[in-house]
């Protein structure tokens, strides 16, 4: 049973994959935009940080679900 719980928690954290890809794409585009228009750096950084925080939420949900699986099923 313990092994199954551990596997379930591990699978739940796979959600972090999406957050990684999303933040990577967002940062890449932001760098491109900054290279094209260096004067808009402030605005781009603000939008980037906000977008990253929102994209990160997916990974966080995965983490919360994994934690709940461990705590509830034990």
């Amino acid at each position: 049973m313990n092994t199954l719980i551990a596997i379930g928690a591990g699978v739940a954290v796979l959600g972090a994959l999406g957050a990684g890809i999303g933040i990577g794409i967002a940062t890449g585009k932001a760098t491109e935009a900054m290279a094209r228009q260096p004067e808009a750096e402030g605005k781009i950084t603000k939008a980037l940080i906000l977008g990253c925080a929102l994209a990160e939420a997916t990974a966080i949900y995965g983490f919360v679900v994994a934690l709940m699986i461990i705590i509830m099923l034990k």
Partner: peptide
């Protein structure tokens, strides 16, 4: 739900 879980998960994750 998303507001609550985002804040909770982030702080808890950082804490752990």
């Amino acid at each position: 739900l998303s507001l609550c879980m985002r804040l909770f998960g982030n702080v808890l994750g950082a804490f752990v």
